[in-house]
Design a protein around this nucleic acid. Structure first.
Length: 297
DNA sequence: CTCTCGATATTCCCTTGAAA
DNA sequence: TTTCAAGGGAATATCGAGAG
């Protein structure tokens, strides 16, 4: 081997992002990638399977495949949504082997995993593989820009380039990445993260939800805000009420808000009152708040 | 045109370690 | 404890360029 200098992971990603020519510096990702529609299907019947392709990647710990897919989502910003690079380039971007032969094998395996999930299409472009992204829902349909159309299938959230430029792609473990994407897809300023509910909605295991939340809070990306009282007839203490910790994303991951959410946020009083159980009896679930208990040192 | 050779991609097999 | 992805090594397939 020669001592020829090699482009590092950070520089490779920076170059790939630069080539994407996105002025927004954020990657649109359809909500269907993390959660399929849980209301009605086409024939009007209720569906119970709400997990998106992300759940498949998380449940089988396909960390590298997710990393590669997010990079592809970032890089393919127009035209036929395809991209052609050497396997070594992708491998460097993933922070893996710089040895050409091993890199090619690794990246090829990852392409196949994504191909099996019908998230990308692979074709030969000379000696290199041309990869074209498909719709994020795993349907295998050709990709379209979610910003162009309205409708449930085109609801999307944005992953900021800072995810890579600030090094979160290497610092966060798979559970934290999964929770980050799932949380951003809610497009709410504030939301609860119940192990069991999140596990059910997004198809992760409750342990994965807990691990992801722990790391996101530890890294300061997820900020506990306040507690709310919710009706839950199955609450463990049999009170019929449940206290839920609410969270909000820190910058730069606080960029996803639905239009309704923006309005509600603007209308919300600056200081909400603390509730008593008596107050709660006459209130609607989720409409009142309690101050977050201060963490003891 | 076609054969050869080097470069690159793909796939299979195996071991190791982490998540469920 | 079981399952399965990551990753290394090796064999094979494919592509492009150059020579005859």
């Amino acid at each position: 081997m020669s001592d020829q200098p090699t482009l590092g992971q950070t520089e490779t990603i920076a170059e790939l992002l630069r080539l994407s020519r996105r002025s927004s510096e954020a990657v649109p990702i359809r909500r269907y990638f993390v959660q399929q529609d849980d209301r009605v299907v086409d024939n009007g019947r209720q569906t119970t399977n709400t997990r998106g392709p992300l759940a498949s990647l998380v449940r089988t710990s396909q960390t590298s495949a997710l990393d590669l897919l997010l990079l592809v989502y970032a890089v393919t910003s127009g035209g036929d949504y395809g991209t052609t690079h050497y396997a070594t380039t992708w491998s460097r971007a993933l922070g893996k082997s710089f040895v050409a032969k091993g890199a090619a094998a690794q990246v090829s395996r990852l392409w196949r995993q994504l191909e099996d999930l019908r998230l990308i299409e692979r074709a030969n472009d000379g000696r290199r593989a041309k990869v074209t992204k498909l719709l994020e829902d795993g349907s295998g349909q050709p990709y379209t820009n979610p910003g162009g159309d309205t409708g449930l299938r085109n609801i999307y959230f944005k992953l900021p380039y800072a995810y890579w430029t600030d090094g979160w792609h290497t610092r966060l473990a798979l559970p934290a990445k999964a929770l980050l994407l799932a949380g951003m897809s809610r497009r709410k300023h504030e939301f609860a993260i119940s192990d069991r509910s999140f596990a059910r909605w997004y198809g992760f295991s409750p342990a994965t939800v807990a691990r992801g939340r722990k790391q996101l809070v530890g890294e300061g990306l997820l900020i506990p805000t306040r507690c709310t009282l919710e009706v839950n007839l199955h609450s463990p203490d049999m009170t019929g009420l449940e206290t839920r910790q609410q969270y909000t994303f820190a910058a730069p991951f606080d960029l996803n808000l639905s239009i309704d959410e923006e309005k509600a946020l603007a209308a919300r009083p600056a200081d909400e009152t603390t509730v008593t159980p008596e107050d709660f009896l006459f209130a609607q679930p989720g409409r009142i708040s309690m101050p977050t208990r201060k963490a003891t040192a």
